[in-house]
Design a protein around this nucleic acid. Structure first.
Lengths: 339, 339
DNA sequence: GATTAGCACTCAGCATTGTTGAGTGCCAAC
DNA sequence: GTTGGCACTCAACAATGCTGAGTGCTAATC
């Protein structure tokens, strides 16, 4: 019970600080929240909380500010979920109504998420690993050059040019095309290797080199490549919070510019369908140590084929952000089910 | 001659201000540049330059700062071209050595340009209008759903899903495919409409609706759509110059996030193969009134099929930036010639 | 007529100083 | 365990004065 009040105080501090961005003092606290005790009592609690590392004073005679640890406790044990507003719910439930293709879905999602959280949003293209192949096509660009097109049932289309060791005849092309189709259609990308590997042997010696190259390219395309993309939006929101990052926002912008970093980030944080939070120093990327990341995986059913999330200041409105990320990830997942 | 010196003074002011970003005074000017006259004389010249609107004082008793008009005069009449450094030249001449596809070329270009100018770089995907068609492919996704793939000789691949009014038989698909290929191969996208329009009539009545839809989609894909893309990079460089924008950088970031705005911007500034400069208020977009844009068109030979440029503070190093944009645009143009 | 030295003037920027008020920690009383 | 009271700290702000960079003007000089 005594413990309870102390946590209530922590919650109140986080909430006040997030909304005002000013260190919060004991008097202000009892005024804004009905805690039923005097400022002096609060001060005692604060002293303990500070001792335990949940809050800190920017300087003597200032109010308290939550530490990363404080936010962590808040997120884990203190915050409820803040339901989306009516307008937001409406926006979320209709944001992919008019989407014409996967690119469009990605762009719309990232905009929506950036808009409702007023932060930087990230959405990753769904991975092919868990997707199935809907179609494989070979197109002759020139006698010794083919375009391999792979269409997944997630709506993703991958293409890749391949130079063949020798010229490819019409017949070979047709044969290869039909064999590939029958071997691949409906197969999950992850299982592709097994299906396709021995295909080479079915062709006469002369053609094997060519077939091998094509198959190799196809596999390479189907396997997750580093080329997996992340779209981001709402960068302008960074400027609004600009000063509130302990460091300048240059390193943050830098990190956001690197696809590789973003992929790693989502790979670490968006591992499960549940929303996951990384606060400040908990982030492994040096440049994002002054930010928090709220992310979730999405995919059909309960699989995770990609991540979605937001990056913002540690003093963000976690309940609202978590709710928004959750909502968008759910809709993205559903979208994959009927592409 | 007297006029000459006044212009020399303007040039010196611009150069000093760009390198120091501090208002420059008469004494500093005679010290850093060998103008051969006394500060008092410079002051007289400055008074005239201010009268004419080329420079201004942030406050009484401060040095002078160039106005947008001053930069304009500098760019038009005073600056030579600053040749790239050895390292930069080497970087430019090899930046697309290992590029595997068009996406790769775009990303590499934008990074390179951002890196050598230390500013925000923009590169637009080459338009299809001036490109020729290398291949058209139709892929059946389901009985009444086709994927139309269009490959241009610029290396660009466009795809689009189309729902057909009725099921498409194997035969129809094959016929349509071969007709399309023979009608389109080698044709410029701009001339496509003429070539393809009457194709519908060559098919039996039953299939015409389907053919018409496919043809329409193909045309739509080939015609420049709003979907033309611009890639940008070096956003983090904005933070470095952050404070030097008269306004905050939030509106700038906002503008940069809008594909539509970027396309319009390049459409206005990158109209010719020559490098073109828009300084401060010369820009038509409200949000970019505090920035300068240096851009050029690129394309095979002397055509312009897309734009490339940088956005930065008005007090940028114009000669260097112009040289960089020029170099990159030339290489991008050459790249289109042998894709 | 253009250039220059000299001089009075202006004013941002900085340091100094004092004041205020928010907020704390501690202690004694409840 | 809670509370009122009190002394203490310190950022933030305002007022003040100083300095130096830089100007514009004028009268002398080339």
């Amino acid at each position: 019970m005594l413990e309870d009040r102390r946590l209530a105080v922590l919650r109140a501090i986080v909430e006040d600080y997030v909304s005002t961005r000013e260190p919060v003092g004991s008097r202000a606290l009892v005024e804004r929240h009905s805690l039923g005790v005097s400022p002096a009592t609060i001060r005692n609690d604060m002293a303990v909380l500070e001792e335990e590392g949940y809050i800190t004073q920017p300087h003597t005679s200032a109010g308290r500010v939550p530490t990363d640890l404080g936010y962590r406790a808040f997120v884990d044990r203190l915050s409820g979920v803040k339901p989306l507003s009516g307008a937001e719910r409406r926006a979320v439930s209709s944001f992919l109504a008019g989407a014409v293709d996967l690119d469009d879905v990605m762009v719309r999602s990232v905009r929506l998420l950036a808009q409702i959280t007023r932060q930087v949003a990230l959405v990753q293209y769904p991975s092919l690993v868990r997707a199935s192949i809907r179609h494989v096509e070979l197109i002759a660009l020139s006698p010794a050059r083919l375009l391999v097109v792979l269409i997944a049932d997630t709506g993703r289309v991958e293409q890749r040019v391949v130079d063949t060791p020798g010229d490819v005849s019409e017949e070979l092309l047709a044969a290869l095309r039909s064999r590939l189709m029958s071997a691949c259609a409906g197969v999950r990308c992850a299982d592709l290797a097994a299906q396709v590997q021995r295909l080479t042997e079915e062709f006469p010696d002369d053609d094997r080199a060519t077939v091998a190259v094509v198959v190799a390219t196809l596999l390479e395309t189907a396997i997750d490549r580093e080329e997996q993309r992340v779209v981001l939006g709402g960068t302008a929101n960074l400027a609004r919070y600009g000063e509130s990052f302990s460091t300048s926002l240059e390193p943050v912008l830098e990190a956001l510019e690197e696809q590789v970093v973003l992929l790693r980030l989502l790979g670490e944080v968006a591992v499960a369908p549940e929303v996951n939070v990384r606060i400040g120093h908990e982030n492994s990327m040096e440049h994002l140590r002054s930010t928090s990341v709220v992310a979730a995986g999405y995919g059909r059913d309960d699989t995770v084929s990609a991540g979605v999330g937001v990056v913002g200041p540690t003093h963000m409105d976690y309940p609202a952000t978590i709710a928004a990320v959750h909502a968008v990830s759910v809709y993205l997942g559903r979208n994959l089910e009927n592409p």
